[in-house]
Structure formats: structure tokens, C-alpha cells
Simulated scan of single mutants.
Amino acid sequence: MEAPQVLLVMGVSGSGKSTVGALLASKLGWKFYDADDYHSEENRIKMGKGVPLSDQDRIPWLCSLRDILLRDATLGQPVVLACSALKKMYRDILIRGGSEDSAKADALAGGRLLVVYLCGSFDLIYGRLLQRKGHFMPPELLQSQFSVLEPPTAPENFIQISVDQGLPEIAAAVMEALK
């Protein structure tokens, strides 16, 4: 199995994806993308009104993110992507896309993408969301994220890390897993 070229830092809103992802990218010298930066204006408005996104809202967004990952992987640029990727189907789109071209479909498969699942209790994460200022995702939508969450399972290439520990411990656990 090849060393991961992409780290997908996933979890519900408020789990620390952006913070952990940016720190990992900095430590590794990899490029960092925050999937939230790539939401359409329609998606942002919908979430801002407290309306959860549907699969139809998310799929074009995930396909755009996959294009970015494929571009960078093709160039040999390792990447950290912070993205909720709550359902297995969403992670499959990021890894395999809907491509009929098997060479393209395999570009991120085979262990080249490692999922870093940041998990924590509803109460802990809800408390964090209440502290967060200026984000388009309101705390009221957290339950909808927990409701659709499908944590990674085998045969997905993943590690699970609890967010009830500090940022240095979380980053150290990921760095250890990469060795």
C-alpha cells in the first residue's frame, strides 16, 4: 500500500476539521483546502437559514472537491482536505468519483487517501458550536449532521480520533498513524 497522498479530515460541524487540517498541513508541508470555502452561495444561504443540505446540494460540491484532489494528486502535491464527508457515499465520491475511467477512479484509491475521522459527543461539539462566531453553519443544524453521520468502517482506510483531547494530542495521533 502506498503512503497516503491525501488526508481527508472529516466529522460533523464543530469537530475541529479546519483547525486540525490546517495544523496537519503546516506540520507536513502539504497543501490545505477547507471544503467550506467551496460551497455554493445557494448552499451557504440554505444552511444560514437553518435548512440542512440534501444529497442533491452536496454532490456537485463533492465533485468539485474531487477534481481539486485529483489535480493535485496528478501533480504529486500531497493535500489535506477538511470536509464533513458525513456519509460513506460522500467519501466514495471524493475517493472514486463517478468516473467510468478506471485509471482516474483509482487515482485516490488503494490507500492513497487516509480518512481522519474526528469524533466526539453531541454535547461537547454543540458547546463548541455555541462558542463559534461568524460561521454560516448554525448550531441548530448539528443534530441533522449527527442523524446522517455514517462513521468510516472497514474496508475504508481510516483512523478515528476523539476530539475530547487537545489539538497537540490529536495532531500527534495523526502524525503517528502516518509513520
Rank of each mutant, 00 (worst) to 15 (best):
G97F: 11
P60Q: 03
F136R: 03
E2S: 14
S84T: 00
V20T: 09
Y126W: 12
A22L: 10
G14T: 01
Q131D: 13
A109W: 12
E169D: 12
G50Q: 07
D92Y: 09
I159N: 08
Q56G: 14
K88N: 06
E100Y: 12
K46F: 03
V148W: 11
Y33K: 11
D55T: 05
I159T: 02
N43D: 02
R58V: 01
L65M: 10
I161S: 04
G98L: 14
A177K: 06
K31Y: 15
Y33D: 09
I59P: 15
V80E: 06
Y38T: 03
A22G: 11
R128H: 03
G48Q: 08
R96F: 13
G134Q: 04
E156L: 05
L130M: 13
T153S: 13
Y33V: 09
S64P: 15
G110I: 07
L114I: 00
K49I: 07
A154K: 13
V148S: 10
D57L: 10
I68Q: 12
K49N: 09
R58Y: 07
D34W: 06
G98I: 13
K31D: 14
E169W: 10
E42F: 13
L23C: 13
L113H: 04
L62T: 03
D72W: 08
Y33H: 14
G97A: 07
G120R: 01
L23A: 15
W61Y: 06
L28H: 09
H39V: 02
V51Q: 15
V9S: 08
A171E: 08
A109S: 12
V174D: 01
R96M: 14
L70N: 12
M89Y: 10
D123K: 14
S54V: 02
D67W: 11
Y126N: 11
V20D: 04
S102G: 14
G166F: 12
G120D: 01
A107H: 10
Q5A: 10
H39A: 00
G110R: 08
